[in-house]
Computed example of a mutant assay.
Amino acid sequence: MSNPWILGLTGGIGSGKSAAAQHFIDLGVHLVDADHAARWVVEPGRPALEHIVERFGPQVLQADGHLNRAALRQLIFEDAEQRHWLESLLHPLIGNEIRDYLAKATSPYAILVSPLLIESGQKQMTQRVLVVDAPEHLQVQRTMQRDQSPEEQVRAILKVQASREERLRHADDVLLNDRDAAWLRSEVERLHRFYLTLNGGRS
Rank of each mutant, 00 (worst) to 15 (best):
L89P: 07
L90H: 07
H91N: 07
H91G: 07
P92T: 05
P92L: 01
P92F: 02
P92D: 02
L93F: 08
L93M: 12
I94A: 01
I94V: 14
G95M: 07
G95F: 03
G95Y: 01
G95N: 07
G95H: 09
N96L: 14
N96W: 07
E97N: 04
E97R: 11
I98M: 03
R99I: 12
R99Y: 02
R99V: 13
D100L: 12
D100A: 13
Y101F: 05
Y101T: 13
Y101D: 05
Y101G: 02
L102W: 02
L102P: 00
L102Q: 01
L102R: 02
A103G: 06
K104H: 11
K104L: 15
K104M: 11
A105W: 08
T106C: 12
T106K: 15
S107A: 14
S107V: 10
P108S: 05
P108D: 04
Y109V: 00
Y109S: 01
A110G: 07
I111K: 10
L112M: 05
S114H: 06
S114Q: 05
P115Y: 06
P115Q: 09
P115M: 07
L116D: 00
L117H: 05
L117Q: 06
L117A: 11
L117P: 11
E119Y: 07
E119D: 09
S120Q: 05
S120V: 06
S120D: 01
G121E: 03
Q122F: 14
Q122K: 08
Q122V: 00
Q122P: 00
K123M: 14
K123V: 14
K123Y: 13
Q124K: 13
M125V: 00
M125L: 15
M125D: 05
M125Q: 12
T126P: 10
T126L: 12
T126I: 12
T126M: 10
T126F: 12
T126H: 11
Q127L: 10
V129K: 08
V129Q: 11
V131F: 12
V131W: 08
